[in-house]
């Protein structure tokens, strides 16, 4: 019976690795993200995955009583998302300034940079 319980750490480990991969791709989206909202979304998703990773790490290290930290993360993540939204609220001009496609690190954009959503809508 104890043998099957020993399987759990490897499950946690595999899940943490997968979450790390997801975090990596979210990070790339946050760096590339053509519009400002893409970045907000990516940061939000990154935060969620961090919370899950932390819960898993707690179980992986055998001390799951540190879940307070995960709770704080969830809270703070929500706070920063709301703060960003309030920052953009009613200021489409700022959204436009923040979100023209970044050519700097954007390697896979094949659309016209001017075709990003807020820009087209602004010009209507």
């Amino acid at each position: 019976m104890s043998s099957i319980l020993e399987l759990m750490p490897s499950v946690y480990a595999g899940a943490s690795l997968a979450l790390l991969a997801v975090m990596g791709s979210t990070l790339v989206r946050a760096i590339l993200g053509p519009t400002a909202f893409d970045r907000v979304m990516a940061v939000n998703m990154f935060g969620t995955k961090t919370v899950l990773l932390l819960s898993l790490l707690g179980f992986l290290s055998g001390r799951p009583d540190f879940l307070d930290i995960a709770l704080v993360y969830a809270l703070v993540n929500f706070l920063s998302t709301i703060a960003v939204l309030r920052f953009f609220e009613g200021r489409p001009q700022v959204v436009k300034q923040c979100s023209t496609t970044d050519v700097d690190l954007d390697v896979n954009h094949d659309a016209d940079p001017d075709a990003s959503g807020p820009t087209t809508a602004m010009e209507e």
């Binding site: 519009t35 907000v40 998302t81 939204l85 009613g90 200021r91 489409p92 959503g117 807020p118 602004m122």
Partner: peptide
């Protein structure tokens, strides 16, 4: 958060 994000994006012209 997703709802608010979508709503703000819509109101900002996306």
């Amino acid at each position: 958060a997703a709802h608010a994000l979508a709503k703000t994006a819509l109101s900002c012209g996306a």
